[in-house]
Amino acid sequence: MKIGYTTHVELPENIKKIFKVMLFPIGNFLAGTVNISNNGFDIFTSLNEGSDLSIVGENGNIMFMVNYKGEDYEIPWLHMLQYAFDQLRSEEYLTSILLSEVALETYVDSTLTNGYLEKGLDKDSISRLLTSAEIPTKVNPLMNNLFEVKLAAASSWPVWERKVLKWRNEIVHGTKVTATKEEAVEAYEVVVDSIFHFIEGFDKFLKKNGSSHGMFYRT
Score class of each variant (00 low, 15 high):
residue 1 M to V: 08
residue 2 K to R: 01
residue 6 T to P: 04
residue 6 T to W: 00
residue 10 E to C: 07
residue 14 N to H: 13
residue 14 N to A: 09
residue 15 I to L: 04
residue 16 K to D: 13
residue 18 I to F: 02
residue 20 K to H: 14
residue 20 K to G: 07
residue 23 L to C: 11
residue 24 F to P: 05
residue 27 G to A: 08
residue 28 N to P: 04
residue 30 L to H: 10
residue 30 L to Y: 02
residue 31 A to P: 03
residue 33 T to Y: 01
residue 33 T to F: 00
residue 34 V to C: 12
residue 34 V to S: 15
residue 34 V to P: 08
residue 37 S to E: 06
residue 38 N to V: 12
residue 38 N to C: 13
residue 39 N to I: 09
residue 40 G to R: 01
residue 40 G to L: 02
residue 40 G to T: 07
residue 41 F to K: 04
residue 42 D to G: 05
residue 42 D to E: 08
residue 44 F to T: 06
residue 47 L to V: 05
residue 49 E to C: 08
residue 49 E to F: 13
residue 49 E to Q: 05
residue 50 G to H: 01
residue 51 S to N: 08
residue 51 S to C: 05
residue 52 D to E: 12
residue 53 L to V: 12
residue 54 S to V: 11
residue 62 I to N: 03
residue 62 I to L: 02
residue 62 I to S: 08
residue 65 M to Y: 07
residue 65 M to H: 07
residue 65 M to D: 13
residue 66 V to S: 07
residue 67 N to S: 15
residue 68 Y to G: 05
residue 68 Y to K: 04
residue 69 K to P: 01
residue 70 G to R: 00
residue 72 D to I: 09
residue 72 D to E: 11
residue 72 D to K: 04
residue 82 Q to W: 09
residue 89 R to A: 12
residue 89 R to E: 14
residue 91 E to M: 06
residue 92 E to Y: 15
residue 93 Y to H: 09
residue 93 Y to W: 09
residue 94 L to D: 05
residue 94 L to R: 06
residue 95 T to A: 13
residue 95 T to L: 11
residue 95 T to M: 08
residue 97 I to E: 00
residue 97 I to R: 00
residue 97 I to Q: 00
residue 97 I to M: 01
residue 98 L to R: 06
residue 98 L to Q: 12
residue 102 V to A: 05
residue 103 A to F: 01
residue 104 L to N: 02
residue 107 Y to S: 07
residue 110 S to F: 08
residue 114 N to A: 11
residue 114 N to S: 13
residue 118 E to W: 12
residue 120 G to R: 02
residue 124 D to G: 11
residue 129 L to V: 15
residue 132 S to H: 14
residue 133 A to G: 10
residue 133 A to H: 02
residue 134 E to F: 15
residue 138 K to H: 10
residue 140 N to L: 01
residue 141 P to D: 07
residue 141 P to F: 03
residue 146 L to P: 10
residue 148 E to Q: 15
residue 149 V to S: 03
residue 150 K to W: 10
residue 151 L to A: 09
residue 151 L to W: 01
residue 152 A to E: 15
residue 155 S to M: 06
residue 161 E to P: 14
residue 161 E to L: 15
residue 162 R to T: 13
residue 162 R to E: 10
residue 163 K to E: 13
residue 166 K to R: 10
residue 167 W to Y: 08
residue 167 W to N: 09
residue 168 R to Q: 03
residue 170 E to P: 02
residue 170 E to M: 08
residue 172 V to Q: 03
residue 174 G to E: 00
residue 175 T to C: 00
residue 177 V to M: 08
residue 178 T to V: 06
residue 179 A to H: 00
residue 179 A to W: 00
residue 179 A to F: 00
residue 181 K to Y: 07
residue 181 K to I: 06
residue 182 E to L: 03
residue 187 A to F: 01
residue 187 A to G: 06
residue 188 Y to E: 07
residue 189 E to P: 12
residue 189 E to W: 10
residue 191 V to A: 05
residue 192 V to N: 05
residue 193 D to Y: 11
residue 194 S to Q: 03
residue 194 S to A: 08
residue 195 I to N: 01
residue 197 H to P: 13
residue 198 F to C: 01
residue 199 I to F: 09
residue 200 E to L: 14
residue 204 K to A: 13
residue 205 F to H: 11
residue 205 F to G: 08
residue 208 K to R: 14
residue 208 K to D: 11
residue 209 N to Y: 12
residue 210 G to S: 04
residue 210 G to R: 03
residue 211 S to P: 02
residue 211 S to I: 03
residue 213 H to V: 15
residue 213 H to P: 12
residue 214 G to V: 03
residue 215 M to V: 14
residue 217 Y to H: 14
residue 219 T to S: 14
